[in-house]
Design a protein around this nucleic acid. Structure first.
Lengths: 349, 349
DNA sequence: TTGAAAGCGCTAACAT
DNA sequence: ATGTTAGCGCTTTCAA
């Protein structure tokens, strides 16, 4: 091998076969179906393979088997801590099953997402859509070609994995009610988001029976900057309690509010959603609905691989994962409000 | 196609060839070397391909070309925000070059890393080692088989991309000196870490000429928990200024210190390294050396693909990326110390 | 510019 | 239990 160059073509199954004095197919069997070959022959083959430094070629195998042991994981922004946890779970489950992850970061661009997915689709056994810009119908089309699981969104005929949004929001609302709050504002995320709709509906449901009032503000970008903007908009007639679409929005909200002299939780209580790691690091700590991010990724992956293995399109493979409320410092008893001119219409907060 | 099943075998190059009335090889050319085929024929082929819904198979192509357009990205923990940024940059650069990322999360396990890499190696054109448990020699071996770039670490004969640790630390030390600090403690990360060694050495160098004293504490795990532990150990004779191995350690340190009644920055100034997004979200904001995380990922990827394209083992492709100091609230003037029994030996802090 | 044929590394179907 | 042959989808000689 010339200096400065990489190893040429690798050792093939034929090389092993020749040295081990067996047919290539036998070598193949020795590696894929060890049971179907004489144990002595198998041992000899393995020994020769080791000596020669033979490595099977997953790609070549994939071509002849049309089974790649690769799965695509699509997110809209890898750097988002929400996805980080999901990826972590997906990665672990995939590795455990002998699968490898193809990471596709759509970078918030539908065009890029389609293009990349298009290029990649034939190389994978299945697709996990953790964060996607694709329309429901586009996803249904996709699901006709390959096994697909969507995360954090439900689509007719496509299996999904979602956190129990309704219960999470209910827990949050109850928590606020216990603290004496009589009204809650939902600070919403992206308009088109299924999760946002689900959460807002849950707020309405959770407050319906009680004496709590629900309002909505937004939409805002589901990041810290979006939260800061939200704070600007609600600062002059801020509510006593807020539930934000997600943690990042909540964190931005707290920042923006604090910067304007509104104290959290003294003046306003803030609840987030997801429980990303930062929630515990900021001051005050963020009270939030803890979604099992890691588990979502892992579960979705397992379901996907089940689908792959069965070769069916099991739409019944959806899951709703349990959530819980993590109470930290950003929520507190409803206090006497500082005197701020408030529209007369609102008498109770 | 049976209901509930996925699409059978896809449209091949042969199907297109038959319908377009040309030889398969011509279709192949039409897609890979458009110049080498009559433009009218090419147009016809493209039209037929579109009508039939033909998609090239990257895998089959890879088998015959031994060029997969896949690259492996190895990290030790996807959920770590440090890697999140790096992955982001790598992903963007890879996509831009028509490459797809195979994400390998070693989950802090060398065994798992070796195993996964082993399984995957033949499927990729190159490897980007962003966070690895592998030994220098193991990496050199690896680099003999495929193009490799290491991040945040330098290894003889293997091209790398690292931030300018020395300059970053120097900036931090100068900043502390200007604030009146006369001594600095370096809270170190993992013992085996190249970056940790580099940073500690940089602390020594930066303080060498000046009147500053340097001490070292650790090693600690490079995460928030590690920082909390570090706080426990240094709390009773805490220094006036600290530089931590990385941001997570610094954040944990601040937490632990604060919990023990030591105020930051009033009692102790804390500087981190990396400038992960959280650094700006905590209270007080973390003063830190900003490493160009995204750029590191992108640069490393570009270098890797250059290597792949050249087919050479260019060890000269290493880069040291510029850093800057981001001053936030965690550093301040050295104040009068509260009376805490301090070993008499230390008179100046 | 195009076609025919051989080959990439591996697996599957059919023999023996 | 093993060998023989054909074939996965694409590319690459080599001729024409």
């Amino acid at each position: 091998m010339a200096e400065g160059e990489h190893a040429r073509s690798s050792v093939t199954i034929y090389d092993v076969a020749r040295v081990a004095q067996v047919a290539p197919s036998t070598v193949s069997r020795a590696f894929s179906r060890p049971g179907r070959v004489n144990s002595e022959t198998a041992a000899r083959i393995r020994r020769v393979a080791d000596e020669l430094g033979y490595r099977t070629s997953p790609l070549a195998r994939a071509v002849s088997q049309s089974r790649t042991r690769l799965m695509a994981l699509v997110v809209s922004d890898v750097a988002n801590p929400f996805y980080a946890e999901v990826i972590h779970g997906a990665q672990a489950a995939a590795t455990a099953a002998g699968y490898t992850l193809l990471l596709i970061d759509a970078q918030e661009s539908e065009r890029l997402e389609r293009a990349t997915l298009d290029r990649t689709l034939s190389s994978v056994d299945g697709v996990l859509l953790a964060g996607t810009r694709l329309s429901d119908s586009a996803i249904r089309m996709l699901a006709k070609q390959k096994p697909v699981i969507v995360l954090n969104r439900t689509i007719v005929d496509v299996p999904s994995v979602v956190p129990d949004n309704a219960r999470g929001i209910r827990l949050a609302v109850e928590h606020l009610a216990e603290l004496g709050h009589r009204s809650v504002t939902y600070v919403s995320g992206p308009e088109a988001s299924w999760a946002d709709g689900a959460r807002w509906r849950a707020v309405l449901e959770a407050t319906a029976g009680s004496s709590m009032r629900a309002r909505r503000s937004g939409p805002y970008a589901p990041d810290v900057a979006g939260g800061v903007r939200a704070a600007e908009e609600i600062a002059d007639r801020y509510p006593s309690a807020v539930i934000a679409y997600n943690d990042q929005l909540a964190i931005g909200l707290i920042r923006g509010l604090t910067a304007r002299g509104v104290r959290v939780p003294r003046d306003v209580s803030v609840v987030g959603f997801d429980n990303i790691p930062v929630a515990d690091l900021i001051t005050p700590g963020l009270t939030t609905v803890a979604a099992p991010l890691y588990t979502e990724g892992a579960t979705a992956t397992r379901h996907l691989l089940t689908l792959v293995a069965s070769g069916q399109r099991g739409t019944s493979l959806s899951a709703v994962l349990p959530v819980k409320l993590v109470v930290r410092g950003s929520t507190g008893r409803r206090g006497r409000r500082r005197s701020i001119p408030t529209p007369a219409a609102e008498g109770d907060d």
